[in-house]
Amino acid sequence: MSGHSTWPEWVYVGVVIALLCYVGAEAWNIERIVEHVPEDAEIIKVTGQQWIWTFEHEDGTKEIGELHVERGKAYKFEITSKDVIHSFNIHDYVVLLDAVPGRVNTVWFSPTEAGEFDIQCREYCGLIHYNMRGTLIVEEKGA
């Protein structure tokens, strides 16, 4: 089967390589940007345990099941667990990270809209997993 034209194959290979480069570069770039925590981000310690979320602000204020933050500020979550593996999720802000016993995982976000948003566990963690919820309350500055 020799002697036939091979240019379509080469074009195909070129297009595939170009697309793979584009997909890889885009994904790598967004991941790099998303993981870059702003220096002035306020740290909030998040602890998951069957079946509640507790939060501790930098000033020592603690909250259970509710988290109050200000719109337009950056927050860095330090997430851990007291018992089994949970997963901390704020769906509306695309925050999702496992809470693992003995380990601190970090993720940051900056709320852009005031209002109330769901916090939920996204890793099956036992009988009441379905109800391991919380509320993110985003307030205007100075409210």
Partner: peptide
């Protein structure tokens, strides 16, 4: 063709993250 895709992506990579005081809209 490869460079046409790679160069803009690379440019974006090295330009990004240099803004000060502006937070990324993660969503």
């Amino acid at each position: 063709l490869g460079l046409l895709f790679v160069l803009p992506a690379a440019e974006q990579v090295f330009a990004a993250g240099s803004e000060v005081g502006e937070y990324l809209d993660r969503k």
